[in-house]
């Protein structure tokens, strides 16, 4: 009759659903489509097609405490002289030419492989990353959907380029409902605990955990526990490659120390939850902002009903 871990995790997922920010999402999507139109209009023949959706919203792994509405703009092979010119042209356009009353122009910035845009919608800051990519060979994109990205220099790392396939990233998680739930739970943990790990890393290691399991547990906690145990046991040694480009080793985005710490965090969480299952609420909290009043009252009633000394009700008639 104790705390129900599965019910709690279902409530966590429910409270982090995007539907709670539906209004904000709709307005953000309008912005996203305007940006796509603007890119098409500005770069005309240099673009292959309208930009495609990427990021967690496109993959259905978004949570309402943190989500980006990212896009990727494919450019023609002969569109620009160099990848750097392509990336800078997009940045310059949004920094200097593009007009939108909701855009926070001083926050438009060059990021590692994208141009970061910030919109202020209904008082909320919405981040949109515009990734620009160039097809590998002339007229190659329509058949392969592969793109070359310009990777800007960072710290002591020089500028470089990387090959990717956004469509493949989106497709990777398609039809994987169980994995998506666990990814969203791990993201909720990541955001609530301020843990800095790339979402793509979380996605890949979770998918790997499911693939490695001889048998997938049927309940939500069983699946989460399985993924956490896999991360604890394998994060230090596992090699996770970008499925679109084996040379892009996503597991290298964490240092050895960061991997060690992640493994320890998983171990601590698992032990604490096994010692006292109510600790699950600490690591995987509800998003109280979007937990409906009715839901809150329902859970309050359930919790208080369990503080009694009588096991179950009965009627002697």
């Amino acid at each position: 009759m104790g705390f129900d871990k599965n019910k709690h995790l279902e409530n966590v997922l429910e409270s982090h659903k995007m539907k709670h920010v539906d209004d904000l999402m709709k307005k953000s999507i309008i912005k996203r489509e305007e940006i796509k139109d603007a890119l098409k209009e500005k770069f005309g023949d240099e673009v292959i097609s309208r930009a495609i959706n990427s990021g967690s919203y496109a993959k259905h792994t978004a949570i309402n405490t943190k989500f980006d509405i990212d896009i990727c703009q494919p450019f023609r092979y002969k569109g620009f002289g160099t990848l750097e010119e392509m990336a800078d042209a997009v940045y310059d356009y949004f920094k200097n030419e593009y007009k939108d009353e909701d855009i926070v122009s001083y926050k438009t910035k060059k990021q590692r492989v994208s141009t970061g845009l910030t919109f202020l919608i209904d008082g909320a800051e919405i981040q949109m990353d515009v990734v620009s990519g160039r097809e590998l060979l002339e007229d190659d994109y329509s058949s392969t959907t592969r793109l070359n990205l310009y990777v800007r220099p960072k710290n002591l790392d020089p500028a470089t380029s990387t090959q990717t396939n956004i469509q493949k990233h989106v497709d990777l998680i398609k039809g994987k409902g169980d994995e998506r739930c666990i990814i969203r739970l791990l993201k909720a943990w990541k955001v609530s605990s301020n843990t800095d790990i790339k979402s793509f890393f979380m996605e890949l290691i979770t998918i790997r955990a499911f693939n490695a399991a001889p048998e997938i547990p049927t309940d939500m906690w069983g699946k989460l526990e399985m993924a956490m145990e896999f991360i604890r046991d394998n994060v230090k040694t596992i090699r996770l490659e970008d499925p679109a480009n084996a040379n892009n080793v996503v597991s290298d985005t964490l240092t050895d120390l960061e991997k060690e710490m992640l493994s320890q965090k998983m171990d601590t969480m698992l032990r604490q939850i096994n010692d006292n299952e109510e600790n699950l609420k600490i690591y995987f909290p509800l998003n109280k902002q979007f937990h409906s009043e009715e839901e809150k009252k329902k859970l309050a009633a359930l919790e208080m009903s369990r503080r009694g000394v009588v096991s179950k009700p009965w009627r002697n008639d």
Partner: peptide, 19 residues
Amino acid sequence: VPHLSRETYWNYTGKYEDG
């Protein structure tokens, strides 16, 4: 209070969660 809470929960869900 726990008994009434159980009844409140029933009013929301139509069931006694703990049987």
